[in-house]
C-alpha cells in the first residue's frame, strides 16, 4: 500500500525539516505518522535510506515505541484508558465491553476501517474515570451501559 503523502515528497520534506540527521529518526517517524496516521513500508524504507539508519533499527524502533502503527487506522480511534485511577474504577470491564462490541482486541482495526481500538496508560483525566476517548473527544464516567451507547453513536 502506498503512502498518501504524494510520492514520498512529504516524507522527504519532513526529513529535511529535521536536517536529515539520524538522531532525529524518532521525531521524523512521529511527524510522518501525524500526517498519515500510520507508517507504510515504503515510507519507512525511504526514511532508513535518507537518514542512513539500518532498516533493522527502524524496525526495532517502530515496534518498541507504542506511538507507532505499521497498519492503517480506522476512521474512529477508540482509546480506553487503563491508568490506575481508571483501573480501580473498573476500566477492565469497560475494555471487555468495548472489545465485545467492536469485535476487536487492543491494537486491532476492523476490516471496514471503522474502529481502531487501543489502550492507553493514562489520559490524565483521572477525575472523570473510567474514561474512553474517541477521536480526541473524552467520554468520562462511562458505565458499562453508557459505553455501548457512546460506541453506537459513531458511524
Amino acid at each position: 500500500m502506498n503512502t498518501t503523502i504524494a510520492d514520498l515528497a512529504g516524507v522527504d520534506r519532513i526529513i529535511a525539516e529535521h536536517g536529515g540527521r539520524a538522531d532525529a529518526l524518532i521525531q521524523v517517524l512521529l511527524d510522518v505518522q501525524a500526517e498519515i496516521s500510520w507508517l507504510p513500508a515504503d515510507a519507512l524504507a525511504r526514511i532508513a535510506e535518507r537518514l542512513d539508519v539500518p532498516p533493522a533499527l527502524v524496525q526495532h524502533i517502530t515496534t518498541f515505541y507504542k506511538a507507532f502503527s505499521l497498519v492503517p487506522k480506522g476512521r474512529h480511534r477508540v482509546h480506553v484508558c487503563m491508568g490506575t485511577a481508571c483501573h480501580v474504577r473498573g476500566a477492565l470491564r469497560i475494555l471487555d465491553t468495548v472489545e465485545e462490541l467492536t469485535g476487536l482486541a487492543p491494537g486491532e482495526t476492523d476490516p471496514d476501517l471503522k474502529f481502531s481500538l487501543e489502550t492507553v496508560n493514562c489520559l490524565g483525566c483521572c477525575a472523570l474515570g473510567p474514561v474512553i476517548e474517541i477521536d480526541g473527544k473524552t467520554h468520562g464516567n462511562v458505565s458499562l451501559a453508557r459505553t455501548e451507547d457512546v460506541l453506537k453513536s459513531y458511524e
Partner: peptide, 30 residues
C-alpha cells in the same frame, strides 16, 4: 543481532518489540 551489526555491519537480523513480546527477526530482503 549484535554480531551481525558490530562485526559484519550487515544488520540482517534485529530485535522487534519490547518487554515480554521482544523477539528477534531477520529482514528478508537483506
Amino acid at each position: 543481532v549484535r554480531y551481525c551489526a558490530e562485526v559484519k555491519g550487515l544488520h540482517a537480523v534485529g530485535f522487534i518489540d519490547r518487554g515480554i513480546r521482544k523477539e528477534i527477526s531477520f529482514l528478508p530482503e537483506i
